[in-house]
Every structure is written in structure tokens, then in C-alpha cells.
Write a protein that binds this DNA or RNA. Structure first.
Length: 864
RNA sequence: GCCGCCGUGGCGGAAUGGUAGACGCCACGGACUUAAAAUCCGUUGAAGGGCAACCUUCGUGGGGGUUCGAGUCCCCCCGGCGGCACCA
């Protein structure tokens, strides 16, 4: 026998493809929904979702099967426990790489995308996932694009009604006499001239959220004012924060979203400018420090800067503005220790004490947040303090850290904690919280300011200048936009010969002259949507993927959004969503936003898309480093499948450690689980002249071995409980224990062995089906699929123990273990313990102070 | 700087406040074999003691604390990973 033959202890190469083919031909995992043949509305639904992959040219990496196996195990388990399980797969197939490949080769992105999808599908199928492949979708499918564009039009035709705190159709506004312009100013999808991040070498603008990612890949980005499509996500900021509380998500992810949305409470305050009719509004979270505002700073790009700058300061201001404009934002961020700025020569009036305060410009104030202007309170803000020190501006303390007694002077650093107001007129003596309220009340009474809540979140820059994305279903005439009729959807981009970026911010579709020009002087919008568009709603389409009349039917939506058996009323549609943390603030925020708009407009019945979210941990290379081509530590799942089989790969990825944890790959570990599967195989079969034949130990008899029976039932119980907890590694170790018990048993009772196969089936579906089939044949059992059997019930009687091991501690230290009756009372346990020589050794001559008795478990004697 | 996550054998990891190290890997020993591989059976936290079954002490990043009892709870510190980063 050769070494390589010895390494293949069970014939997975034959049976894995065989079972995959059979599941496919028998449609084992077809999921009937409302309207489908075989749909049973009485069954509770369970919707378990993977983050669908971008079908890159390099295929799956081992990170993909980690989450996919986890959801597959849960999906299969839920099927076996009587649920109608929706567990679909698809492809997020728009995106830059296909287009960049097209630039290199001239091949249309649709061709490379289709080839990549075929490869992904092959790889996914080789892992035996129980997807309903009839529901497969790709975001680039014309029928999918149609409904992505349709949803965009819902946004376009809606505005955010502040009174109702929800989206409403703009038709309501038309009915109440709003003008075209007024309506265009409130649409959820709108056009704005705004400074955006534009990348000359990518030939597109990027969302704020994307900039860092592309810069890390070596692309350049610069700030440009451009006319772009925006989505008014900021209107949902508060709901996006508040409704996180209703979701079963990791706290860390909730926090990331909250911080990203960045709510702060404070006031907006108006400052008059001396010798000029302008007023400047600032936002502050510390209105209580207004008496300490000794200067003001505007962002260098602030529109008032040219108007207020005095002639003497003009050249200095212009030079500074120019220097800032040429700085990339990275430089601007890096320089945050060294404050820079220029005096404009102008003065503002502090509204509360009427002092003249100088107005500066500085790059530590951002145009994009608040009003692009601040009141500087150097005594109580670190940045203002630094700036004031650098430019010798006055510092006035207005908050004392000393809550009783005389104010503590400060000199060396800003004091930004809450304290007691001082030097602040009518605020003196008030603690910060009250002092804020008092100041806001004063500002409002004097019409100088107003209470305000400010968010960091900006509206979502939704247009790109790329080719491989959904075109906007919008046409233009006379600088006015309008929607194309729904009957014209999907609107597909025309083929191009040249996909190269032009080096200008012009959309690439501008090259398609014939496509752009429409009768009557209409022109098509030539921007395209970002890749996020497709991933914002794919979980909805899976529910009814072939519907040509609606993005999903009301019936399908109602059923798949209904609360599942164990979540009584869940605001989220998907019961379990598994994917990486990298989408914490992008996809997961965008999808929630779209879902809420669709909810407001009555198209879906839940306010949230994803009820429970789990982030799988990154799989590192064997060297403990992030897998990367350059490090040469990448593991290809195809290689693992061909060497050890799909079941071994699945099982290994689940056995590595907790799903959510970051963990390194170890090829030896794959061998370990492969050995485990071989042990299960050899419980059933023994090798005889190069053939596997049924083991004589397997007998169709009642299990008389109480110990074995107990292990089997413990395993049934623990594996089920562990799957519910997503604790797959511990479930597997229990099945190893059970298998070891079978290996050592004289007789393997058939019924119990099949129970082990059943609980192992969701983890290792191929080998368990194969063993089950072969064994069933020998014992003339009906040839049913294990995947279609029900989850075995554990027998509580089999778990009963009559005697337990009582742990005896003295002063918390383990001193003895005694076998006593399971339900022995304290007196009996105490007598037994005090009778033990080992215990006596430590208690003799000592006084017993106390006995702690945990029935069935432990006795602790406190003695000295 | 701020926020979050995490520190347990040689390694991956297990442990409702109650026997630390389950299960697996590695290593070592034995059986089978002409031999090796595979397989099966065992040993395997550290230090010390005993002919032996075993026994003792130490031990979950470090230091304090709460508790009859702490890997687990609280406070402080150190180290690693991830996110945000002049957000007024």
C-alpha cells in the first residue's frame, strides 16, 4: 500500500460527489415558499443567511466556508427539527475588479463575472452546502437590476416626513401644492453639488466609508466639488441608533454603528460679525462654556471667509487656503499635533458678554461637520487650548473642577470634564449639566441660538462614474431630472469597447453616445450605482427570486418575515445573519436604511432586516498572520477538499475554535478531524481485502451497555444545545467522545449508532449519508436520506446517574472525591466526607466552622 | 488619544462562581508488522516525593480585592488584535 493510499482512510472522493449529485437531482434542499408546490404554511420558518460573496477571480478562500458551514449546520439542524429553512446563496457581482480586468483585456465584465460565478458555484457545491440553488441570484442579473432600480425609484419618489418620523411619497407633497423645486430638495434620493472624494486612477468618486480601503490599495483620492446623487440617510440617523436596541447583535457592532452615526447633543449659537451684516452659526456641545469663548475658527473652505477677511489679511488667508487645498486629507489628519491657522482680521461678538473675539481659519475645523465653524473655548477644549497657546490667544476659565470651595486655577492643560460654572454671569455655581440647560434656555429666549442634535453621519454619496454597476433610471432635460417609467426597467448599460477611465470625473457611460441621447432632447443619467446597492436588499429577493411582477410578493414577504418559533416578536426579518466584521458600518448600515424606507412605504412588514447577527472571526495563516498572497500563507479550500474531503474541511473549520474568534489555520488540525471521521467510518466498516465491509460489531439489538447509552444520549443533548448556541467546536468534541465510546464498545447497537450519524449529519453530511445508506442496506432498513430524518430526541432516563462523585474540599482545596448516592442529603454527605481518611488528615485537631454543601456536586469544609 | 475585543500546557482550545487543562494536535511508550505507514491501546501542565497505587506544592498576563471557594465578579497595571481618530 502506498503512503498516499494510506492517507485516504475513507473513500470520500467517490461518495462526496455522489451525494452532491443526489441532493441536486432529488431537490433535497428545495425550500418551498408561499405559492410553491409542497409549501406547508404551518411549519415555522427559519431564515439563515450568509453574506453573499463578491465572485472574485481567485475563487473562495478558507474564510468563506467558515461562516457558510456554520449557517449550513444550523440550517440542516433546523430542517431536522421541523422548520421550513430558507438558506440561500448568491453573488454580489457588480464591482470594480471585473471592470479593471475589462480594461486590461477588453473582455466585457459580464463574461468574466459569469466565469467567476461558475467557479464559485462549483466550489460551493463541492462543500455540500444545503442551499436551495433554485433561489440563487446575482446582483448583475437583469431581473435583479430591475428591482434594484425600482427600489431606487421608491427612494426618489419619497421624502422624509419629520412629523411622522418616516418616509412618505412625494406625491403627498404634490397634492398639497409643493413646487417641483421644493420637492427636489427633500427627496430621499437627490442631486447635490458637493465636495466628494474622487479617485483619478479608479475614475470614480468614493463614499466616505470607502476612501480608506482604496487608499490602502494604493489608489489616490482627491477632494472635488461634483454634482452627485445622494441618499438622505441622515434623516434616519436617530432611528438607526434607537432601533439597534431591538436587535440581537454583538454589542461591539452596535457600538461601531452608534459611533459612526455619532450623535451629539448641544446647541447652535449665532454670532454677529463686527462691521458686517453676516452672522455665523456654530454648533457646540458645551453651550455652558459660552462665556469662555475667546475666539472663533472657521474651516478654511467656509464660504464666508472671502467676505470677512480684511484687506491686510487677504494674502495670508489665501495662501493658507491654497496650502490646505493641496493637502490630502491624510496629511491633514496626521498634522493634528501641530495646529496651524491664520487670522482673518475680522471679529465676532460673543453674544453672551458682547466681547469682540477674533475670527481665525484653521484646518482643525472641518467644513463637513456641524456648520464648519466653531466657537473656541481654549480653557475647556484640548484642541482650542493648543491652538490658543500656539497663537497666543486669550484663555478664560469658566468651569471649575472644584465642586466646593474656591475655583482651582488651570494653566497647563484644558479642563474638559464637567464641573461648576465660574466667571459666567447667570450660570455661576451651576454644575455643567444644568448650566448647559440654562444657557440653552437663555439663547432660545433671546433668539440667539437653539437646542440642537448633531450627527457625524453624512448623507450617502450614491453615484459612481464606473461602468459595472446599475445605471440610474433617470433622464434629464433642461437641467431637470425625472424618473423613467417602471415599464422601462431594467435599464441596462450598453456594451462599451473602451472601459478606461478618462482621467476626468466624467462618468464612463458618457462614451455611449447613442445610449445617452433620447428623443425630445432627453439625456440619460450616466452615473451608476455603487456596489452596495445590490447588497442592500438581496436578502429580500431570496424570498421570491423569480417574481417578475414585484421585488417580492406580499405573501412571500409576510411568511419569511414572520416571527420564528423561538423569537416571539422580532423586528428583524432574517433570523440569523453570519458574516465578517468588516461590514459593521457599511453594508449593515445601508441595508438597514433601505429596509426602513421600504418599511415606511409599506413594502415590507418588519422595521429591521437582520434580527440576529454573528461575526465570524478571521482565519489567519499557519504563521499567525493575515492570509495574503505576498506572505504565501494562503490556504485554498479546493486543495483541502481534494486532499481530505469536504466533510473534513467543514468539520475542521468548525473545530478550530469559537466561530467569532480570530484563529490560525493548522493543517495538522485538518488531519485530526479527518482521523475522527475515519474513526466513525471504521465503527461501521472494517477493511477486508481492500474492500470496506460492515463491521461485525454492529448489531441491530437494544443497547444494554448503560455507559454507552448514556454517552449517546448526552451527545444528542449536548450537540443540539451547542448548535443552538453556535458552539460548534464543543459539539464536535462531544461527538468525538461518543465515537471513541463506540470504538471501544464490544457491540455497536445499530439504533444508537444511527443516532450519532444523525447528529453528525449537519456537520459532515456526505460521510454520514454514505455510512447510513450502506448500513441501512445491510440491515434491510428503508433507504431514507439522513438529511430528511428528524433530529433524535435524547432520553432523559438514559442520562440518569444513581451515584455521583462528590468533590470534598477543605478551605476550598480539593482533598477527596467520594462516590455517594446522587440525592444524598447534607448529613449523609458530611458523614461520608468526615469519614474519609484523606479528609481527616486535614481536619484532625482543627475546628470545623462551616460546611458548604452543593447537592450532587460538592462539599466544602471550612476549618482552622 | 478614545472605544471595543482578547491574554489558560509545546500548539488550537474546554470549563452555569464549585475537580483548571474536556476534545484535538504535537511528543513519547506499547501492540500489530520482516520493516515502515496506517490502525489500536496507553502516557503527556510544572516542580518535588514514593518500590507502588499514589501524595505534596505551584499554576489561567501582573498586582490588589470580594467570596467558604475566582480562569470566571470588582479595581489598578502590562501586553496583543481590531475600529475610530482634530466630529467642536
Amino acid at each position: 500500500m502506498t503512503m498516499s493510499a494510506a492517507r485516504k482512510p475513507f473513500p470520500f472522493r467517490e461518495f462526496e460527489p455522489k451525494w452532491q449529485a443526489r441532493w441536486e437531482s432529488e431537490q433535497t434542499f428545495r425550500t418551498p415558499g408561499p405559492g410553491d408546490a409542497g409549501f406547508n404554511p404551518a411549519k415555522p420558518k427559519f431564515y439563515v443567511l450568509d453574506m453573499f460573496p463578491y465572485p472574485s477571480g481567485t475563487g473562495l478562500h478558507v474564510g468563506h466556508p467558515e461562516g457558510y458551514t456554520a449557517t449550513d449546520i444550523i440550517g440542516r439542524y433546523k430542517r431536522m427539527t421541523g422548520h421550513n429553512v430558507l438558506h440561500p446563496m448568491g453573488y454580489d457581482s457588480f464591482g470594480l475588479p471585473a471592470e479593471q480586468y475589462a480594461i486590461k483585456t477588453g473582455q466585457h465584465p459580464a463574461i468574466t463575472t459569469a466565469a467567476n460565478i461558475d467557479n464559485f458555484r462549483r466550489q460551493l457545491k463541492s462543500l455540500g452546502f444545503a442551499y436551495d440553488w433554485n433561489r440563487e441570484i446575482a446582483t448583475t442579473d437583469p431581473e435583479y437590476v430591475r428591482w434594484t432600480q425600482w427600489i431606487f425609484l421608491q427612494l426618489y419618489h419619497a421624502y422624509f416626513c419629520e412629523e411622522k418620523n418616516q418616509a412618505r411619497p412625494v406625491a403627498d407633497l404634490e397634492a398639497s401644492g409643493w413646487t417641483r423645486e421644493q420637492i427636489d430638495n427633500v427627496r430621499l434620493a437627490y442631486v447635490a453639488d458637493t465636495p466628494v472624494w474622487w479617485s483619478p486612477d479608479l475614475g470614480t468618486v468614493l463614499a466616505n466609508e470607502e476612501v480608506e480601503e482604496w487608499k490602502a490599495k494604493g489608489h489616490t483620492v482627491e477632494r472635488r466639488p461634483l454634482r452627485q446623487w445622494m441618499l438622505r440617510i441622515t434623516k434616519y440617523a436617530q432611528r438607526l441608533i434607537d432601533e439597534l436596541d431591538t436587535l440581537d447583535w454583538p454589542e461591539g457592532i452596535k457600538l461601531l454603528q452608534k459611533n459612526w452615526i455619532g450623535r451629539s447633543e448641544g446647541a447652535s449659537v449665532r454670532f454677529e460679525i463686527s462691521n458686517c451684516n453676516l452672522q455665523i452659526e456654530v454648533f457646540t456641545t458645551r453651550p455652558d462654556t459660552l462665556f469662555g469663548a475667546t475666539y472663533m475658527v472657521l474651516a478654511p473652505e467656509h464660504p464666508y471667509v472671502p467676505e470677512i477677511t480684511t484687506p491686510a489679511q487677504q494674502s495670508a488667508v489665501a495662501a493658507y487656503q491654497k496650502a490646505i487645498a493641496s493637502k490630502s486629507d491624510m496629511d491633514r489628519g496626521d498634522l493634528n499635533k501641530d495646529k496651524s491657522g491664520v487670522f482673518t482680521g475680522a471679529f465676532a461678538v460673543n453674544p453672551v458678554n458682547h466681547e469682540q473675539i477674533p475670527i481665525w481659519i484653521a484646518d482643525y475645523v472641518m467644513m463637513g461637520y456641524g456648520t464648519g465653524a466653531i466657537m473656541a473655548v481654549p480653557a475647556h477644549d484640548e484642541r482650542d487650548f493648543e491652538f490658543a497657546q500656539r497663537f497666543d490667544l486669550p484663555i478664560t476659565q469658566v468651569v471649575s473642577s472644584n465642586t466646593d470651595g474656591p475655583p482651582v486655577p488651570l494653566l497647563l492643560e484644558a479642563f474638559s470634564d464637567p464641573g461648576i460654572a465660574i466667571n459666567s454671569g447667570f450660570l455661576d455655581g451651576l454644575p455643567t449639566a444644568q448650566s448647559k440647560d440654562r444657557m440653552i434656555a437663555w439663547l432660545e429666549a433671546n433668539k440667539l441660538g437653539i437646542r440642537r442634535i448633531q450627527y457625524k453621519l453624512r448623507d450617502w454619496l450614491f453615484s459612481r462614474q464606473r461602468y459595472w454597476g446599475e445605471p440610474f433610471p433617470i433622464i434629464w432635460k433642461d437641467d431637470r431630472h425625472q424618473a423613467i417609467p417602471e415599464s422601462e426597467l431594467p435599464l441596462l448599460a450598453p456594451p462599451l469597447e473602451d472601459y478606461k477611465p478618462s482621467g476626468t470625473p466624467e462618468p464612463i457611460l458618457n462614451k455611449a453616445k447613442e445610449w445617452i441621447h433620447l428623443p425630445d432632447g432627453f439625456l440619460r443619467e450616466t452615473n451608476t450605482m455603487p456596489q452596495w446597492a445590490g447588497s442592500c436588499w438581496y436578502y429580500l429577493r431570496y424570498c421570491d427570486p423569480r417574481n417578475t411582477a414585484r421585488f417580492l410578493s406580499e405573501e412571500a414577504e409576510a411568511y419569511w418575515a414572520s416571527s420564528s418559533a423561538h423569537a416571539k416578536s422580532s423586528p428583524g426579518m432574517v433570523d440569523l445573519y453570519v458574516g465578517g466584521t468588516e461590514h459593521a458600518v457599511l453594508h449593515l448600515l445601508y441595508a438597514r436604511f433601505w429596509h426602513k424606507v421600504l418599511f415606511d412605504l409599506g413594502h415590507v412588514t418588519t422595521p429591521e432586516p437582520f434580527q440576529k447577527l454573528v461575526n465570524q472571526g478571521l482565519i489567519l495563516g499557519e504563521d499567525g498572520q493575515k492570509m495574503s498572497k505576498s506572505r504565501g500563507n494562503v490556504v485554498n479550500p479546493d486543495d483541502v477538499v481534494s486532499e481530505y474531503g469536504a466533510d473534513a474541511l467543514r468539520l475542521y473549520e468548525m473545530f478550530m475554535g469559537p466561530l467569532e474568534q480570530v484563529k490560525p489555520w493548522q493543517m495538522k488540525g485538518v488531519e485530526g478531524v479527518s482521523r475522527f471521521l475515519a474513526r466513525v467510518w471504521r465503527v461501521a466498516f472494517e477493511e477486508h481485502e481492500n474492500q470496506w465491509r460492515i463491521s461485525k460489531k454492529i448489531q441491530d439489538v437494544a443497547c444494554t451497555d448503560k455507559g454507552l447509552l448514556r454517552v449517546v444520549h448526552e451527545t444528542i443533548q449536548k450537540v443540539g444545545a451547542d448548535i443552538e448556541k453556535l458552539s460548534f467546536n464543543t459539539a464536535i468534541s462531544q461527538m468525538m467522545i461518543c465515537t471513541n465510546a463506540f470504538t471501544q464498545a464490544e457491540v455497536v447497537p445499530l439504533r444508537e449508532f444511527i443516532q450519532l450519524l444523525a447528529v453528525l449529519n449537519p456537520f459532515a453530511p456526505h460521510i454520514t449519508e454514505e455510512i447510513h445508506e450502506r448500513v441501512a442496506e445491510v440491515f434491510k432498513h428503508p433507504a431514507v436520506l439522513l438529511s430528511e430524518t428528524t433530529w433524535p430526541a435524547h432520553d432523559p432516563l438514559a442520562l440518569v446517574r444513581h451515584e455521583i462523585e462528590l468533590v470534598v474540599q477543605i478551605n476550598g482545596k480539593l482533598r477527596d472525591r467520594l462516590m455517594i448516592a446522587k440525592d444524598a442529603d447534607e448529613e449523609t454527605a458530611k458523614a461520608a466526607a468526615l469519614n474519609s481518611p484523606k479528609v481527616r488528615e486535614h481536619t484532625d485537631g482543627k475546628t470545623l466552622h462551616k460546611i458548604i454543601f452543593i447537592p450532587g456536586k460538592l462539599l466544602n469544609i471550612v476549618a482552622s
